[in-house]
Amino acid sequence: MKNTIAILALSSFFAFSACKKKDVTENSIEKTENQKSYEFIVDSVKAQGSTKVGDSLSVTFSSKLLVFPGLKDKALLDSIYFNEKGLSDFSKTGMQKYLEEEKDKYFISMKKDDELYSDLGHVQEWFSHSNMKLKSNANDYMHIQYSAEAYIGGAHGEYGFSERVFDLKKNRKLELKDITSMPNNKLEALLMKNIDKTKGNASDADGEVKNSEMLLVEKIPASDNFYFDDKNLYFHYSPYEITAYAAGDIVIPVSWEELKGTLNEEFKERMKIK
C-alpha cells in the first residue's frame, strides 16, 4: 500500500529561514541575478480533492508542480520531474492533465485496498501531499525543493524533502563533484563537526536536544541532497535518514572556507567565491 503513496527521501522549513534564502514568487517572470537578456518564466499547476472510501475513512490528495515554459531541453526536464515517471508532456495543459490522472489513480488504489481500513475502529483522515518550490535562480543555477508527506494510519505520518540544483547553462542536474573535489571521508568529518550548527527540533524536560544526540548513524554521508548560497554548501536529511524521527529533518552547513582549495574553478567563478 505504501508504494501507492509517493514519499521523497528527503529539511526543515525552519532551516531554510535560517539560511536566509528568499523564495522566488511563482506565476511570475524572474531574471537571473547576472541580468541575462532572457526572461525566466515560472508557472504552476495543482490538483487536489478528497473522497470517502469507507465508513470510517476519508482520503485527501494534493499535488503541485512547477511549470517552466522557457525550458525546452528534454533531458533537463526529465531530470527536473524525476519523480513523475509517467510525465512526458511538459506543457501546462499536459501537466495539469497528468496531475488529475494521478489524483484519480490514488483514489482508485485506496478504494481497492479495503483490507487496510475495514476495521479501523474510529474515523480517520488519510492523505498524500506533494509540492515543488523554486527556492532560487542565480548565476544560472536553479534550486528546486521537492517535498512530500503522507499519513496512512499509525502513530504519525511520513514526510521528506529533496533538494536539486540544475545548471541551466549545461542543461543538467548539478552533481557534488561539480562543486568540490574533497574526498568523501573528509566531507563526512565536516558534516559530523557541523551537525549542531543548525538548531535542533527535539526537546526534553531540560530543553533543546542537540542533533548530535539524536544520531542513528556513525558517519553522516555526503548525499546528493544538497543546495548552496553565497556562504555555504548545505546538506539536507529527512527524518530517519541520519537521526530519530523526533529530530525532524536536518540541514547541515559546510562553509566555502572549509572547502577552500577543493572548489571547482568554474563553479567558484560563477558563484563569485573569493
Rank of each mutant, 00 (worst) to 15 (best):
G49P: 10
M110R: 10
A75F: 02
S128I: 05
T60C: 09
F61T: 10
K64F: 00
G261E: 10
F228N: 10
S88W: 00
G248E: 00
S109H: 08
E115V: 08
L77G: 07
E269I: 06
T243Q: 03
P239N: 07
I252E: 01
F127I: 05
T243S: 15
S28C: 02
T51P: 06
A202D: 13
K173Y: 00
N139A: 15
K52H: 09
W256Y: 15
D206C: 01
R172M: 03
T198P: 01
Y227C: 12
S91P: 04
S62T: 15
I250A: 02
S88F: 07
K268W: 02
H129D: 13
S12G: 12
Q96M: 07
T198I: 03
S56L: 15
A247H: 04
G86Y: 05
I5W: 01
A222L: 03
D104V: 03
L116R: 09
A138E: 12
L191R: 06
S109R: 11
S255I: 04
S130W: 04
D113G: 05
E269K: 15
S147W: 09
H143G: 01
F14M: 12
K74G: 01
I195Y: 03
I220M: 06
V254C: 07
H129R: 13
S255C: 05
S17A: 11
S88C: 04
Q48Y: 12
L8C: 02
E101A: 15
V59I: 15
D43S: 14
N131D: 14
E125V: 13
N171W: 00
V209W: 00
G70P: 01
E115M: 08
S109N: 15
N131Y: 13
G153T: 02
D167A: 02
S63V: 01
S181W: 09
S130H: 05
E26I: 14
R172H: 08
K272R: 11
M1G: 12
N201M: 14
F40G: 01
L87K: 05
N131V: 06
L190F: 07
P253N: 06
S11P: 04
M110V: 05
H236Q: 07
P253G: 10
T60N: 12
I7V: 15
K219S: 12
D43V: 03
D119C: 05
K22T: 15
I41K: 14
P69Q: 01
Y98I: 11
L215A: 06
K219M: 03
K199D: 10
E125I: 09
T4V: 08
F107L: 11
I220Y: 06
K52C: 10
G86P: 04
L191T: 06
E188S: 13
R172T: 03
S223L: 12
K92M: 01
L190E: 07
S203A: 11
L120S: 09
A15V: 07
S58C: 07
E115W: 13
T60K: 14
Y151L: 02
E208N: 08
E213P: 00
K135F: 13
E175A: 13
I144W: 00
L134N: 07
S130N: 09
I273Y: 04
G94H: 07
